[in-house]
Amino acid sequence: MPLLKDNDFIDDTWQRLDDGAAIPATGDILVSLARLLADFGKLSNRDGRLGVEFPNEERPGVLESFLPDLSLIALTFPKFADGRAYSQARQLRQLGYDGELRAIGDVLPDQLSFMLETGFDAFEVTERFPEEAWEQAASSISLTYQSAAYQPRRLHVWRLRWARDEGV
């Protein structure tokens, strides 16, 4: 599946490691939470970056002590209407995680801006939609009424007002 990052389709260099599979000596690997908890020692002492696919029902707090060693956290949308990962993303950013936060599962253009606002910066997407559809979806609304969690793209209405009223 293509990976959308910074408005571009790029190749996914990460390798998904099955729970029983041997740990390769090099390369970036993405493991399950169970594997992370079981094999963290080995996983963190190798030549290559480490990522975890984090389940929908878990509390992001369990990752807190691992965050410095993680370069990718994948959060899942089992159905696009299941919005738990938005809150998980927000909590992870609040915990100070600043590596790649990837949305996987049922990821559609119409939810892209919500994902960006809550702290996602990479998206595993289907080829059904052309690149323009994603770009358009992310930019169709330029304003937001919420203070953004992370790297805001849209302009915050309340701050704009403040600036206007101060004559800044």
Binding site: F80, G83, Y86, S113, F114, E117, T144, A148, W158
Partner: peptide, 13 residues
């Protein structure tokens, strides 16, 4: 009203 409008985190409760 404003805070809840298209709230990115709380639109798929």
């Amino acid at each position: 009203r404003q805070w809840s409008t298209l709230h990115p985190e709380f639109s798929f409760l």
